[in-house]
Each structure stands twice: as structure tokens, then as C-alpha cells.
């Protein structure tokens, strides 16, 4: 036992520990209650694959935004009928990007970020990183999008 441990210190320490335990016992359910939607989204984020039937594909020279698990993805169908899919969330500050076929670019309207519509590479403006790319596989009557 430490020499300077007085009864007063022991009692205060015990009370402090009891109060901390009590606060924890109350805080934990409240935290889990508030975190529930975030936990659900984390569960959704584990989705690594989605299917899209042929008839829901965008027309050639256009794009569509998809809910891919907990995040958004942009599926672009170029004029030559090749298809690419990227995360639709701008790497700058999280706005949802748009495909502009006439200017052959992916554009973020919030702060003017521009990405290459074939590679997702950040070309100009504030975005620090390229858009994450997903694999697109064409099968009979549908398209399968996979996270690498």
C-alpha cells in the first residue's frame, strides 16, 4: 500500500470510480442508440457486388447514379458502348459528381473539380485524389458491378 494513501483519498477514489462506472453504464446504451443508423450503414458498406438489369442501364453517351451499398456510384456508358463505374463522391469535399458528355468530363459542381470520364483520374480543380473505380462486367441480360 502506498504510504500517502489516506482514508480520504481512498474514499474519493472509490466514489470517483463508482461515478465513472455509473456514467459508463448510462452512456453505453445512449451511444448504441444514437449509433444505430451508422452501424446499419457500416453493415451496408460491406456490400461488394450489385447487379443491374440490362433495361436499367443508361443510354449510350449518358450516365446514372446508383446506390451501391452505403455509398453512391456513377455508371457511365460511353458512346462506344464501353462502361465504367466510379465512386460518385467527389474526393474533395464529398459532393456527388455529374457526367457531362458534351464536355467529356466528370464534373463536381460544388467547387469545380474535374475528373477523366474513362479513368476517374482527377484532372483539374481541387480534388486531391482520383475517384475510386469499380469493376463492371457485362453478362447476359445484366451488368455486375464489383468493388475491387
Amino acid at each position: 500500500m502506498p504510504a500517502d494513501l489516506t482514508r480520504r483519498k481512498l474514499i474519493w477514489g472509490g466514489l470517483g470510480a463508482a461515478a465513472a462506472a455509473y456514467a459508463g453504464a448510462l452512456g453505453y446504451p445512449v451511444y448504441r442508440y444514437l449509433a444505430d443508423p451508422a452501424e446499419e450503414a457500416a453493415e451496408l458498406a460491406k456490400v461488394t457486388e450489385m447487379e443491374l438489369p440490362e433495361e436499367e442501364l443508361p443510354a449510350a453517351g449518358s450516365a446514372t447514379i446508383l446506390q451501391f451499398g452505403a455509398r453512391k456510384a456513377i455508371l457511365i456508358r460511353h458512346d462506344d458502348d464501353t462502361m465504367v463505374c466510379f465512386s460518385a463522391v467527389c474526393t474533395h469535399l464529398g459532393c456527388t459528381v455529374a457526367y457531362q458528355a458534351d464536355q467529356d468530363r466528370i464534373y463536381c459542381a460544388c467547387h469545380g473539380g474535374v475528373y477523366d470520364p474513362r479513368t476517374g483520374q482527377n484532372v483539374s480543380g481541387p480534388p486531391p485524389r482520383p475517384l475510386e473505380e469499380f469493376n463492371v462486367e457485362r453478362l447476359d441480360g445484366k451488368v455486375v458491378i464489383r468493388r475491387a
Binding site: 446504451p29 445512449v30 448504441r32 442508440y33 449509433a35 444505430d36 452501424e39
Partner: peptide, 9 residues
């Protein structure tokens, strides 16, 4: 029934 600890709150 769904939200964590919602029944308790």
C-alpha cells in the same frame, strides 16, 4: 424492436 436500446429509452 429495431433500434439498439430503443426499447430501453
Amino acid at each position: 424492436y429495431d433500434i439498439q436500446f430503443g426499447w430501453f429509452v
